[in-house]
Structures are given as structure tokens and as C-alpha cells.
């Protein structure tokens, strides 16, 4: 007697359940990591600038950035002269090969500034560079404490006015601001991948 053929249901091979589980796991990992990143992210600390200040990194032209950097290193040599009781003229600074006072091929490409010394006013001494081409670089002013003491907060500052007729009557913050000058600010940002010590 022959047995009746048996019918077995063979489901097609598939991994539907496993796929769902893996997707759920991936979703859980994504949600967890998103929450952790969101909780641990510290907002970038941005120092707001006053309306009479201008940011050296973001708001200056290439030529202005170059002159600003040159003025800040020249300030070290100038401060030494001031401490010795001497106020160096723009011509004397050029003779020392100090940029941007030294006239060379780049002078015109960086605004063609004509530099003059503004002696002793309000405890400061200044060096004014009047621009011939404000579209390349505005007029610049280097202001240093008259006694050459540069460790004070206001010891060295660089100011900008995008005009060919920029003048300086007095060297106080208030006088410069009221006549349209803006102080160039620099900020130090350590590498974003560093884990800075407290």
C-alpha cells in the first residue's frame, strides 16, 4: 500500500525578520549617537564685536590683513625706541627695513600708503598711513602708548578707516571712534581638534 504523498510548505529563503532587527539596531545606534552628540556639543564661543571694531580675519581685504600684521610686529621695535625716549619717524622706520613703512614694489599693490608720525597726544603716539587706493586697503593707524609700555591692554592697537582723506586730531578711543575709525581686533583660536587644558 503506497503512502499518500505529503505536501510540505517550503517558504522562500529570506531574511525579513533579520533585516528588520538590523534596521531597528541601526536606528537605535543613530538615535543614541545623535542624542549624545547633541548633549555634548558646546556652542562656539563668539565674542561680539562693538560697532567701532572690525575683525582682522573676516572683515579685512588681503592687503589690509598684510599691513595689519606688519604693523603689529613693527610695534615691538617702535616700543623699544619709545622706551628710550625716541619717537621714530616713518622715514627712520623705513630705513630700518620695517614694513609697511619701507616703500617697495608691494606698496602700491597694498594701497600706496603715505606714512606720517603723529606725536604725543593723550598718552599715545601714532603712525598714520593714508591710503591712495581704499578699494585695496583703507587708511591705517598704528597707536602705541607714548611710554612704549606695550603690556597694557591699550598698549598697541591698529585702526582702519576706508578713506583717502583720513585724519587724526586726537588719539583717544573716543576721538578716533567719533571720526569714523574702527579698531582692528585679532583673536586667537587654537586648533579645533585640540583638547585644551583648563
Amino acid at each position: 500500500m503506497r503512502e499518500a504523498p505529503q505536501t510540505r510548505l517550503v517558504r522562500p529563503a529570506g531574511a525579513g525578520a533579520e533585516t528588520v532587527l538590523v534596521l531597528i539596531l541601526c536606528g537605535a545606534i543613530l538615535i543614541t549617537s545623535t542624542v549624545i552628540v547633541a548633549l555634548r556639543t558646546a556652542p562656539a564661543v563668539q565674542t561680539a564685536l562693538a560697532n567701532w571694531q572690525i575683525d582682522a580675519r573676516m572683515d579685512l581685504t588681503a592687503a589690509e590683513q598684510g599691513i595689519n600684521a606688519d604693523l603689529r610686529i613693527a610695534a615691538d621695535d617702535i616700543a623699544v625706541a619709545l622706551q628710550g625716549g625716541e619717537v621714530p619717524t616713518a622715514e627712520a622706520l623705513a630705513a630700518e627695513a620695517l614694513a609697511p613703512f619701507l616703500k617697495d614694489a608691494t606698496t602700491g599693490a597694498r594701497g600706496g600708503h603715505a606714512w606720517v608720525t603723529i606725536e604725543g597726544s593723550d598718552g599715545f603716539t601714532g603712525w598714520l598711513g593714508r591710503s591712495a587706493s581704499p578699494e585695496l586697503a583703507g587708511s591705517m593707524l598704528l597707536r602705541i602708548a607714548a611710554d612704549g609700555e606695550t603690556t597694557r591692554k591699550a598698549g598697541i592697537s591698529v585702526w582702519l578707516k576706508r578713506s583717502t582723506t583720513a585724519t587724526v586730531a586726537r588719539l583717544t578711543d573716543e576721538a578716533l571712534i567719533s571720526s569714523g575709525w574702527k579698531e582692528i581686533t585679532i583673536r586667537y583660536d587654537a586648533s579645533v581638534t585640540r583638547d585644551l587644558r583648563p
Partner: peptide
């Protein structure tokens, strides 16, 4: 710093003007 400045000044003196 003085020596470095002279390097820059000497190089730039080779140019009459900038493009």
C-alpha cells in the same frame, strides 16, 4: 628678526612693481 626683514626687503627689491 632684523635678518629676516632683510631677506624680505632684498627679495621685494627685485620687483619694480606688482601686477
Amino acid at each position: 628678526a632684523q635678518r629676516l626683514r632683510k631677506i624680505k626687503a632684498a627679495a621685494l627689491s627685485e620687483l619694480k612693481t606688482m601686477p
